[in-house]
Design a protein around this nucleic acid. Sequence first.
RNA 1: GAGACCAUAGCUCAGCUGGAUAGAGCAUCAGUUUGCGGAACUGAGGGUCGGAGGUUCGAAUCCUCUUGGUCUCGCCA
Length: 601
Amino acid sequence: MIDKIKNEWKDCVARALGTYLGATDFPEPNMGVPPKPEMGDIAFPMFPYARIKGMNPARIAADVKEILSKAEHPAGTLSTAGAYLNVKIDSSSLFSDLVRKIGMEGSSYGCNSSLRGKKVMLEFSCPNTNKPLHLGHMRNDSLGESVAAILKANGAEVMKVNLINNRGVHICKSMLAYKEFSNGETPADTGEKGDHFVGRYYVRFANWSKEYEGRIVALEKEGRNDEAEKLRADSPDARAQRMLKAWEDGDEEVLALWRTMNKWTLDGLEQSYRDMGISFDRYYYESDTYKFGKSEVLKGLEEGVFFREKDGSVQIDLSDIGLDRKVLLRKDGTTIYITQDLGTAIRRHEDWPFDSMIYVVASEQAYHFKVLFHILKKLGYTWADGLHHLSYGMVNLPEGKMKSREGTVVDADDLLAELSALAKEEIVSKGREALVGDVDETSRKIALAALNYYLLQVSPVRDMIFDPKKSISFSGNTGPYLEYMGARISSILKKAEEDGIASASDVDGSLLCNEDEEHLILLLSSYPSLVAEAAAGFDPSVITSFLYDVAKTFSHYYHDNQILKAGSPELVSARLSLCRAVLQVLKNGFALVGIPFLESM
RNA sequence: GAGACCAUAGCUCAGCUGGAUAGAGCAUCAGUUUGCGGAACUGAGGGUCGGAGGUUCGAAUCCUCUUGGUCUCGCCA
């Protein structure tokens, strides 16, 4: 709506310029935003025409303003400031249309159909089945969920998929430690969440292996190399390798343990996903796709896309894209990471022929995806042009990188619990338990708002620093602040209803003429174009900044202006309509960035 | 060594296809409640946009070089 008006203005300015310059061939006017709201809503700089006309740009601005003011143009007022021709849009004339549109469209206000008919597959999360989720996964999951919602809002058909990394030597490590040290205990026995239970054995393995390594090195120092060799052959790492071989050979005992422990972990991860509001439409498992990947590589070998090295490994020459060679099958014929990913991609396109597929994966894997996409193209899959790596930076701590060995990894469940506890404290300290209803559920939703907003407000490409103690506050530019605005507007509307203030069907927009009201109306009008912009760049931070802008403006507005006790019934009615519109847009935006809406908090 | 990405206030981050005096939050300091939720609002101080060139009427933004940081270049995943 706002875009339409802006473009109308742009056309008008272009026509006026045409008349003024007496030409048809000149650069089309640039549209900007004046630095201060009172200067107007659209700015047209006249610099480019100064040279053409050989005149002072400020003079041009004044002359064009003259021409324009006599011509037909949308409602609004013109002014000049130096070389700028500024337009103040008559927002009150927008208001009734805006209110009607938002009222009619409700939760779909802001959606468009630019991606209608497009099938987009979105892969994210992709956990290993040997440990619980950590902060890094949370950024991944937040991004995945948000981008999925944003693409849907643009009309795409979205399939969210998760690829479970449930095979490989790292999985065997937790299994081996369990076999060695558990005495058969189960998560049910210890009361632990399954992923934490298994993760504990993964850590146990690491310590066990380290201890062995120390003994081996000590023996070697003493020159007792035979004994060292013997110890090494029996080391945890060697045994894990043998277990992997047994797993691949189909050893029933190993497979049984694998199934059991995988289930424990996945049950635990499912719980975390539920708590964090993450869901998937389909799961893929590496254990299912790695063999398929191998057969695809062998097919490519026959077709001459790949070649077999003298040592027996299968490789591809990537010199055409300025890279080296890449191994696709080991000399013993076993598969590697990329073999499996090739198989998974092909299988997925067979399952659900997508137009595009987005991998939400950390930037450290940029090389992997470059190679993967290239190979798929070389194999002749035309759909490979629709593959996209949504790369995001790392989440670091103030003291540096998270390191599992140093125990500095921030556990996702712990973090959520900690934030929920803080939120609960806040609710209790304000004595709002009864007003809130389910205190624990509300606390969790506040924690989620804090987390998702914090993780999404940073542009995906950037590394970010996360200070668990300080970074997540509930005041200022935060998720809970946005939720709070939603709750307060809800509260006003509720009170209006209780007081029997009827909502008028036709409101007089011309009553809403203070600066904040005008700003809010323009903001709400611009929301649909931002939904499109967020989709184009796969960037939820477009939405988070918008929401903060709306909340902040509203905050300021209702601090200074009474709504229910405004001067006249007509003004009350108009302001209530504005409140409803703001609330609806906040809710719609919340849904795109994982902020739960709360009527009361 | 080669390549990719990042650098903006004390800290955490915005800044759209180049446009007017570079913006928020936190922290610091000073204020605001006889009113619909104070998880709020207002104000102040705080900047050589890593550095140097270039393009342009105009550069935090584009180009080149350079410094610093991170990541990748495994028959690990």
